[in-house]
Design a protein around this nucleic acid. Structure first.
Lengths: 233, 233, 233, 233
DNA sequence: TATGAATGAGCGTTCATTCAT
DNA sequence: CATGAATGAACGCTCATTCAT
């Protein structure tokens, strides 16, 4: 809920830095208030720049918003291109992919909120973007590769739709974050404490792997048995 | 995306009907445009009613919005109170609970959108409600009962957090609906066709039950094996 | 600042009483908020009658206001017709006339405020009245009689304009009441405490009589010498 | 009753001039219609300026009104600081003080009306001012000095309350101006013609000095005897 | 490049008033 | 006589945007 700080470029003749600063402040505003609720005035004031500069650099409120969501979706995609995953055995790769997704969502609340905002607006603006779509041409490739590898090894169950798998991995991490405010009110407890987040992380991994991994004949390979994540405090 | 029509009660001097009509039209407006984006003028026009009447009945835009979300959350809760579930064996009860949740989300797109909208506003309005919270005191009771019954029978795995389970059941159904517009653009295919929804329904049930249900020693009781829902076309 | 009480005529079929009640409540509203600031809604609510009744009885806001000021000006005039004055010697009569004016202003703050309100509106409404003007045809008669009697006795100074005398008697009592709120703020003390009002009453009488009464040749008849009012606590 | 014109600074991009113009036009509006009756739209139109500019410069209607009354009260005080008075003998100083007050009221009808308006609103706005009160800390000083000087010389009567004297000097000049519209209707003659104003001016001076000045033993020093003002036509 | 001044459209809200019974 | 339902006009104010330099 705080205005982004970044090196304030007051009296700077550095156009790029000013632009970046505006973008960062605008992101905070759109994250906080949505598209309709955001105020150009507040952005200009928070940037300590003249309001006209916003229009000079970005053209209009909607275009400024577009620049913000283009940046956030590019950041998401950059994170997803995790080639190191393909070097791991399928179950470990999948586990890593799930935790990476989860961790990125947790670490980037702006992403969660802007995704909600953009869907409230029926993705009308994202569709106007010419930069985002190209990045997502192969969105499912890594996941599909891991999935197929695990299936051909007999480790993963057959008949798994990669889109459904993607939606589940995302949804399991997304929902409790995106809807934390209504949920924590109705459930009468905070949902995004470090403790609860860590527990949920384990739960999500368990659920995805329980679904994917064939139980071994002798039952000793129950996914849950190894759900303890070593890398996380 | 259009204003609700309902039997137009124009020229009727029936306060309750007028109020209900306003509420229905207002819901459509808030669903479509969010809180900040909604326009009282549009609501009044769509109702064929004087704008002042909105204020006469509801006091303010925010209070009208509150009335809308109170109604939608009450509807959600009414649906969740499914006592018939407790008469079923745990696995069937759980399966039914998951499909009920899923089906209600699919059948009530307004709910999904208003949940998103309200979370964009940090649940500020829901928290003002005095009617919603009381309904949700025992939100997790049914789920907890089913879960514990399954665990004591040895059918469900131990160590399952009921909150996490609730979040997962909801999230698996919620995300692909709430974010369908960005997702279908990025994934280059529609996500809410009848075919895809049916497939996703099966997938969600499979995932939840695969997570919960112990594999039987001989491995022939894989949850997925019985995922075919008979009751759904 | 309080709503007038009067016997609340709820469920009374007594039209006259209802009308009177509305009038009393309306007076309080106009006194408090002026003409533009008054609200028909507030009046109706305070009367616990339907808003339409105000229109039924009085036609419009401006006409209701007119009824209020007609009543208050009639009350003022009724008070001024003090025939007993003419039975007194001129100086005592004048003293009585001044104190009567003063006391009536003090006792009727509504009068002061409605006079200010009506003048803010350039007496536009009072001029529409057909009932007030007739009452004031002989407004200055009593004053003129007393004045002339005193002059012909050699007790009052000659060359006194009766209008100026009237304006002074009124103005000396009016101003500190009408402007009490700004004055007491700027002078940093309350002006309408019982003590201050009593002192001002003496002062006003002194000033008017000092102006009117010839000093007696031996100087022992200084008006101030007898300024102590016996009749007042 | 018409909006002030002043050199119309349209097409001028001079903030200070625009602000001053708005203030002048706003004063005329508040003088004419009071606070509740004034219309921001009318002010904007009369200024040939966008309505939003009023808010940009003054924040709100109430704050614009506050700026107007701050200016008028500052003007009143500026006029009252008449140090030359102290160089005159007490009776002449007092005479001058009374005429100055009277003349300022006559010359500034906006002041009279805004004082009435502000009192109708219980001085609620003046009390919000941080600039007016400091100017009025020593409001009574000059008057007190003149009074005491005259008393110690034996020229003025003892036992005069300086506040009452101030209220009387003001009230004698204020009332016939503030209430001219009702009065001239009820008295059936105009009250603010040059002739009547001049006569009233003499009357007010006479009354104040008759009250203050001891009659000389031989009676030839009747205050009224020298009431003829030379400086006024 | 950057700014202070200014705008037009429209928003949420209010208010005196009228309709229908 | 009295009421609940409903209205039209306009009010104070906001907001994205443009002008002029």
């Amino acid at each position: 809920m705080e205005a982004v700080e970044m090196t304030p470029p007051r009296r700077t003749r550095n156009a790029a830095a000013t632009r970046a600063h505006i973008l960062a402040v605008a992101q905070a505003e759109f994250v906080d208030h949505g598209l309709s609720g955001a105020r150009m005035d507040r952005i200009a004031t928070a940037c300590a720049v003249n309001k006209n500069l916003l229009y000079h650099y970005f053209g209009s409120k909607e275009d400024l918003y577009l620049a913000v969501i283009e940046a956030i979706w590019a950041g998401l995609r950059a994170h997803q291109r995790d080639d190191e995953l393909l070097a791991l055995p399928p179950d470990q790769a999948m586990r890593r992919l799930v935790t990476n997704t989860f961790d990125h969502f947790v670490a980037t609340p702006e992403l969660i909120r802007l995704m909600s905002v953009e869907n409230i607006h029926y993705a009308r603006n994202l569709r106007r973007s010419t930069t985002v779509k190209p990045l997502y041409g192969d969105l499912l490739d890594t996941l599909r590769t891991i999935l197929q590898r695990g299936q051909s090894e007999g480790m993963f169950r057959p008949g798994v739709d990669v889109i459904d798998l993607y939606l589940s991995i995302s949804g399991l991490a997304y929902f409790f974050l995106s809807n934390q405010h209504t949920l924590s009110w109705l459930l009468d407890r905070p949902l995004v404490t470090p403790r609860r987040v860590a527990a949920r992380r384990r739960h999500v991994v368990d659920m995805v792997l329980a679904y994917l991994v064939h139980p071994s004949p002798d039952g000793q390979d129950m996914p849950a048995a190894q759900s303890g994540e070593r890398r996380q405090g």
